[in-house]
């Protein structure tokens, strides 16, 4: 099992304003699967993704990535693990606007003091159709292209798992389809595990597994034929 989460609990606020975003939630993700987490606004799906990705510490429970407990690590170790084994695609604020496309893509590798595998990076860029734009700055790209760069960046460090938080939330239908297809290609071609949060059931339908969340609990967990 690539990723395991046990009895996750996350509470925001206190006293009268206390809101339980995750209620004793457990989940297991197998390697190489494409998982879609769906649910209504405020259901806790983004919180779950952030907790699984080591971005938000749960109040209770633990998350194991490749048998390593994320929240028992030091902050620096977790960060290093995140930049080596995880990739992220967010809805907004996906890219560093002061960096061009190629710089954005290789940023996690540079931060890790790693050596850039030029051939692999160019392969990804070609795959995502960004060859002509590789030296462009972020403001010169469309929303769809920006998300493609985010996917490329997520793939750059050859992570074990990619977390995508509403990657199509800000895109038109055509671009949304392209982005989801690319995630699917990444899963297949590079044997990546993808966890995607979306509220769009059509988008979710490309996933191998669809998990539905409501009020911080999993109410449905279905494997699809795709």
């Amino acid at each position: 099992m690539l990723l395991k989460a046990k009895n996750l609990k996350k509470i925001y606020g206190f006293d009268d304003n206390r809101v339980e975003a995750l209620k004793d939630l457990s989940i297991e993700i197998e390697e190489g699967t494409f998982v879609a987490i769906v649910g209504r606004s405020g259901s806790g799906k983004s919180t779950l993704l952030h907790v699984l990705g080591g971005l938000v510490k749960p109040d209770k429970g633990e998350v194991l990535l490749e048998e390593q407990s994320l929240y028992s690590m030091s902050d620096d170790t977790l960060t290093r693990l995140r930049r080596r084994r995880m990739g992220f695609v967010f809805q907004f604020f996906n890219l560093i606007s002061t960096q061009n496309v190629i710089e954005n893509i290789v940023l996690p590798i540079h931060l890790d003091n790693g050596k850039v595998d030029e051939e692999y990076i160019h392969e990804i860029i070609d795959l995502l159709g960004l060859t002509e734009k590789k030296n462009a700055f972020i403001h010169e790209l469309s929303g769809g292209q920006q998300q493609k760069v985010a996917i490329a960046r997520a793939l750059a460090s050859k992570p074990a798992i990619i977390f995508a938080d509403e990657p199509t939330g800000n895109l038109d239908a055509k671009s949304s389809k392209e982005v989801v297809d690319l995630l699917k290609i990444a899963q297949r071609q590079y044997h990546e595990t993808v966890i995607m949060v979306t509220h769009d059931e059509l988008i979710a339908s490309v996933a191998d597994r669809i998990i539905t969340i409501e009020d911080g609990r999993i109410i449905n967990d279905t494997k699809t034929k795709s």
Binding site: L55, D76, F88, I96, P108
Partner: peptide
């Protein structure tokens, strides 16, 4: 904050 969160998300340590 969000820009920093992104940088942290993609692997920048607190020190960096």
């Amino acid at each position: 904050t969000k820009e920093f969160a992104l940088l942290r998300g993609v692997g920048m340590t607190t020190r960096q």
